[in-house]
């Protein structure tokens, strides 16, 4: 893969990741959100794949395949089941409405670009230039956890945070060790499984999946 093609594909894939993050804030339908997440997972795998091919790193290519499988297929499938099992699969009334969320996402992206300047300056490679995208994804994920009510949206937010971190790790260090990547993926997978059980419990107990119901547990 020659220089300009490599740079532009990498930029495209990183951009897709950020766009998917914004899409999760934009769409209220939970099934659409989960689809965006699946696309993001594939894009993340693609980033790893491009880096692996460019650096002739077999381990990184294996990691890329694993990322695509877990974040692109397994986790979205699990989440999709939670979504389809509840009839009201919509984020009906988010705490902050959609237009305001999008403005917030834009502000967070600016902040990410501003805050990562020193990091970008430190990394000499082409890939380093896209680090702010990963950071923005992380912040948007956090933001969506704050403003969304459904339990599924929460886990989507957490996955966005995780994907953002993974993207920064791939771009900044040219791939984390396989073991670390496996560990992180397993963590996220476990969180999703726990959430699935929790959501099923909440559904049978309260008949809703709003986290506000948990407020009762405070005292």
């Amino acid at each position: 893969m020659n220089g300009p093609a490599y740079a532009s594909t990498l930029e495209l894939m990183s951009g897709v990741i950020l766009v998917c993050a914004v899409v999760t804030l934009w769409r209220r339908s939970l099934s659409a959100v989960v689809k965006a997440l699946a696309v993001q997972g594939f894009a993340l795998g693609a980033v790893a794949l491009i880096l692996g091919i460019r650096q002739h790193d077999a381990v990184l290519i294996v990691v890329a395949c694993l990322v695509m499988a877990s974040k692109g297929a397994v986790i979205p499938t699990l989440l999709g089941r939670v979504v389809t099992s509840s009839p009201t699969g919509r984020e009906a009334s988010p705490i902050v409405n959609v237009p305001a969320s999008l403005v917030g996402a834009a502000a967070l992206t600016f902040l990410a670009y501003g805050a990562t300047q020193p990091v970008v300056a430190l990394i000499p490679t082409t890939a380093g230039r896209f680090v702010p995208l990963g950071f923005a994804t992380l912040l948007i994920g956090f933001f969506s956890m704050v403003v969304r009510r459904k339990a599924v949206s929460q886990i989507v937010g957490l996955l966005l945070v995780d994907n953002g971190i993974a993207l920064v790790a791939f771009l900044a260090t040219a791939g984390v060790p396989l073991l670390v990547e496996l560990g992180a993926s397993l963590d996220v997978l476990l969180a999703v499984v726990v959430l699935r059980v929790l959501a099923a419990q909440m559904w049978s107990e309260f008949g809703v999946l709003d986290l506000d119901q948990l407020r009762e547990l405070r005292d």
């Binding site: 501003g114 300047q117 912040l139 956090f142 403003v147 009510r149 948990l214 009762e216 547990l217």
Partner: peptide, 25 residues
């Protein structure tokens, strides 16, 4: 400060993170 809302607790974390990032920029 603690009203039992998960969202509020998460918001504390996000606000703190954003403030720190804004401060170092």
């Amino acid at each position: 400060l603690q009203n039992g809302s998960v969202h509020r607790y998460l918001a504390y974390g996000l606000v703190a993170l954003v403030l720190i990032l804004a401060a170092i920029t």
